[in-house]
Simulated scan of single mutants.
Amino acid sequence: MKLWKTVRRFLPLSLLAFVLAGCGETNLTALDPKGPQSQWLFDNMLLSLYIMAFVTIVVFAIFFIILAKFRRNPGDDEIPKQVHGSTALEITWTVIPIILLTILAVPTITGTFMLADKEPDPEVGENTVSIKVTGHQFWWQFDYEKEGFTAGNDVYIPVGEKVIFELHAQDVQHSFWVPALGGKVDTIPGITNHLWLEADEPGVFKGKCAELCGSAHALMDFKVIALERDEYDAWVEGMTAEVPEPTETLAQQGRAVFEENSCIGCHATGGMGTAAGPALSNFGNRTTIANYLEHTPENLEAWIRDPKGLKQGAVMPAYPAMSDEDMEALIAYLESLTID
Rank of each mutant, 00 (worst) to 15 (best):
G85L: 06
K81F: 12
F258G: 03
E301I: 03
G273H: 00
P202T: 09
C209A: 09
Q37I: 08
V204K: 11
I79R: 08
E78I: 12
V155H: 06
G214A: 06
V59I: 12
V95R: 10
A234I: 02
A21P: 00
L300R: 05
T94H: 01
F54R: 01
H168M: 11
Y333A: 03
A169V: 09
E145V: 08
V257F: 10
E245C: 08
P158M: 06
L250Y: 00
A17F: 13
L337H: 06
A302D: 09
N282D: 15
D326A: 08
R286C: 01
P33W: 09
I289G: 00
R9C: 13
R71Q: 14
T134Y: 04
A17M: 10
N27C: 01
I103D: 03
E145Q: 12
I96T: 12
I103R: 05
P74M: 01
E248Q: 07
L16M: 13
Q173L: 07
V172L: 02
G85H: 10
E161C: 00
R8T: 03
L11C: 00
L11G: 01
V59T: 14
P320S: 04
E231A: 14
G22D: 08
L280D: 04
S336E: 01
K208D: 09
P320R: 06
I304C: 10
H136V: 05
Y292M: 03
A241W: 07
D200L: 11
Q170G: 10
G271R: 10
A180E: 08
A218I: 13
Q253F: 03
M45A: 13
G24P: 10
L219G: 00
L46W: 15
P307A: 04
A241T: 11
I188H: 06
K5D: 03
K118A: 07
K69L: 14
E294C: 00
A21W: 13
G265F: 04
F176Y: 13
N127S: 12
F283L: 14
V315D: 08
E147Y: 12
N282Y: 04
A21L: 09
Y50D: 07
T110M: 13
C23R: 10
G182I: 08
F258Q: 05
F18H: 05
W235K: 09
I57P: 02
Q141S: 14
I109V: 14
K2I: 11
A314Q: 08
D233P: 00
A321L: 11
Q137N: 15
I96G: 04
K311V: 00
S48K: 11
I103N: 02
D326Q: 15
S323C: 02
N153H: 06
F205E: 06
Y333L: 02
A151S: 15
T87P: 00
N193F: 06
S175W: 03
